[in-house]
Amino acid sequence: MPITITRHDEVAVLRLGSRFDAYEAANVRQAMTEAIDGTPRVIVDLSDVQFMDSTALAILVQGMKRCRQQQGDLRLSGLQQPVRVIFDLTRLDSAFQIYATEAEAIASFQ
């Protein structure tokens, strides 16, 4: 599934495909850069993502750091159970603001 970027006022929503790992890293990194260049307020929607590896996590952490450097933030939405487990285990759930739905994540920026 392709990566899409949509804009809601000053918030960019990045929706990823089903697989987010080392093989998809270059595509996601490029889309992420594109989104952050537009606005430092970014939501990464993971509703379709069933698996993430550490390379994928590193990309999200990098994006989050870049957004916060620019007084914005990178927030997550739609974590599926297998992905939720990865965030819990690594405690990265405490580094990100995580929302159940994309709409809630967008509202959090208002």
């Binding site: 952490v61 285990l89 690594t90 405690r91």
Partner: peptide
């Protein structure tokens, strides 16, 4: 059982 991590990985915050 799993022993959960208490804190974030190195280099995140």
């Amino acid at each position: 059982r799993l022993l959960p991590a208490q804190d974030l990985p190195l280099g995140v915050l």
